[in-house]
Amino acid sequence: MSEKSVTVRNLTMSFKEVQAVKGISFEVSRGEVFGLVGPDGAGKTTTMRILAAILTPDSGEARILGFNSAADREKIHDRIAYMSQRFGLYQDLTVEENMEFYADMYGVKRSELKASMDKLLDWSSLAPFRKRPAGKLSGGMKQKLGLACALIHTPELLLLDEPTNGVDPVSRKEFWNLLYKLVDEGLTIIMTTAYLDEAERCHRLVFMDKGKITARGTPQEIVSLIPGGVLKFNSDNPFEESNKIAESTKAVSTVFGSQVHVMGSITEEDIQRSISRPLQITRTKGSVEDAFVYLSETNHA
């Protein structure tokens, strides 16, 4: 077996008129947490569905754990877990019954089922709710149950499509702690996300926009793509002042709370010139989120 868990070469996929994925390539190593990041409509979900061997790409190739995604569907399905945006749980079945059902679908042996179920219930702290119908769980617990169901057959690769969409911040943090435990055990994870703080938690990322990969690397490498870093200042009218800067200079300007972040070939003096009040400008390396804004703005221009 190769040490690459997933290899994608020149993948394209169209739906009727729309070309959702326009020739992307990337590799994911074993034991890596790999993020597909990008705005809605970037082609992330389509890519995930190809990796999950549900969609057959128009051209290009995706090798999943050494198998071709179009030809070896069943072998791939035996070895991976895929959790779609809304993991399908049977609301009227209990926590245990849902797990049993997915275990049965994957052909997990009854003798092994109890042990792995106990382990997953314990791991996800769902054990006290074994007999509760899935429909009566909170959003975060449903998410964890979804993950537990997806992992019931001990897969080698976990595909997560916006797993924390609509989950509260506390549950999201818990969810990530669970994911890290899995990675420690050797699982490879590929996930899509629109939350940039989550992107920062990945080992490596690719940015997708309009079906293409616009940047790739570790979070640090991505951040370093902002030339000269980020200039920040506090403002009472952040949106107004941000617009002013964007209009009078060629810089990319964006608002975070009451802070204005300015990126691009621009100096403190340039900013001070467009805003007619004394500013306290600080320069930082910036975050993945800054990089994301910068990259998508400069790409569109």
Partner: peptide
Amino acid sequence: REVEIGTMEQIMVTPM
């Protein structure tokens, strides 16, 4: 119904 609640997508990735 399975499509609506999202279980269809999930069943698709099982070897069923």
